[in-house]
Amino acid sequence: MIAIVDYKMGNLRSVENALRRLGAEFIVTADAEQIRKADKVLLPGVGNAAEAMENLRAAGLVEVIRSLRRPVLGICVGMQVMCRHSEEGDVDCLGIFDARVKRFVPSADEKVPHMGWNSIGNLETKLFKDVRGGEMVYFVHSFYPELCPDTIATTRHGVMFSAALKYENFYGTQFHPEKSGDVGERIIANFLKL
């Protein structure tokens, strides 16, 4: 059973739909016991990192997430809260990935938010099995995790940043695999096979 963590950070419908299309069984829950028992945990999230941390704390899930030993996938803000610190609201996060989350500085060629399809490269780990470097996935964000030893995919938007991170059983993608067409579905399917 897969647990999608519901901590009131945006609509979960597209993540649920992606799992449904792949024929996976899942529950949507904020219950610590169910999350601990799950074979896989998905931590989606759209919105503000500081608010996301606050909501995790309010739900009593900070230690629960940190102590998970089965595969966990954070998506977008769900990944950012697994980093060390975010400039968004100057908040200390879960500290699973050794990256800080920084704000993009807009320029003539780099709009903020970074919105749309961009290519991922330097792909590592089974999360990207059968995904070619240079394939495009969908991003929507104004803050990005810096490069660090946990980086398993990179993207450039003015700066080079971590498009995906991994530390032990924890994975995170800054992009939205659930909105990234067939490539995204392949990545979610790979996560489900871990």
Partner: peptide, 8 residues
Amino acid sequence: ISDGINIP
């Protein structure tokens, strides 16, 4: 639409 489409 949300159920059936995998792009934004």
